[in-house]
């Protein structure tokens, strides 16, 4: 039973400046009475506020919104990386977050080893990954380069490898955050096919992107984030149109 239940969840980031991020001030603060209240004051960024969201098996949700609207933070909330500061987020299912293709990749080890490590990070077992290595190798077209350390790869080759691994897994909850570029066009076409197959395997998808084209291919519903809150949620076309419409309104309204 794959599901995500978020109830009135908020995510606040404490921003410790150099002063408050030190033991000295806290220690002195405890002793110092009134000064303490000021010294301990920590700036907080409210990244998400009052998020209510219920997703279940089969949902294909697109996330849209301006830069800094809270899309990535929401994905991290849904993945369980950030536990909500207030409210609740209940996640049932194995989460495969694909936020940054490079994370967990080690430049000093070979491509093959990176495939294994990346797979383990995404919740696969060693056996499962060994069974998929050939498939991934074929897809990436890297050939003998797979035995070379990753630092010898070009950016495009790294993306190929990362995409190859990511699209080979069996996630229950798949969270995608843009970042699919820097690949040559022909390869991207093939990657799209694999991406679609991956999404079909996944029980639940949340996909943040600025590309209407991709969103329309992969998603059925959409959620529009603005200033850390949900602005609108509904069928894909409706929300995309509303979002695009607002985009076109002269900036006076903002």
């Amino acid at each position: 039973m794959v599901s995500i239940d978020v109830h009135d969840a908020s995510v606040d980031f404490p921003i410790f400046d150099a002063k408050s991020r030190s033991l000295k001030h806290t220690v002195l603060g405890v002793v110092g009475g009134n000064v303490a209240a000021n010294a301990r004051k920590v700036v907080v960024i409210e990244a998400l506020r009052g998020i209510d969201l219920h997703l279940q098996d089969g949902d294909r949700l697109a996330l849209v919104g301006h830069n800094g609207a809270g899309k990535s933070t929401l994905l991290r909330l849904l993945s369980g990386i950030y536990e909500p500061t207030r409210g609740q987020a209940l996640i049932n299912g194995r989460v495969a977050p694909v936020f940054d293709l490079g994370v967990g990749m080690d430049p000093e080890i070979s491509g093959l080893e990176n495939i294994l490590v990346r797979g383990l990070f995404l919740g696969m077992t060693r056996k499962q990954m060994e069974a998929r290595v050939d498939d991934i190798a074929e897809f990436t077209e890297l050939g003998n380069f797979l035995n070379m350390p990753l630092r010898t790869y070009s950016t495009g080759m790294r993306v190929r490898l990362a995409l190859g691994v990511v699209t080979s897994i069996d996630p229950e909850i798949l969270l995608l955050d843009e970042g699919i570029g820097a690949v040559d066009a022909a390869f991207l076409e093939r990657a799209k096919g694999r991406l679609k197959a991956l999404v079909d395997r996944a029980g639940l998808l949340v996909f943040a992107s600025h590309s209407d084209d991709l969103l329309k291919q992969l998603c059925t519903s959409a959620l529009w984030m603005e200033h850390g809150t949900i602005r609108q949620q509904g069928p894909l076309d409706e929300v995309l149109d509303a979002y695009a419409g607002r985009e076109h309104v002269p900036s006076g309204a903002d």
Partner: peptide
């Protein structure tokens, strides 16, 4: 704009 103004938001029972 800070309040969700979508009628379609399927808020699950708390």
């Amino acid at each position: 704009t800070t309040t969700p103004d979508s009628a379609a938001a399927p808020t699950a029972a708390a």
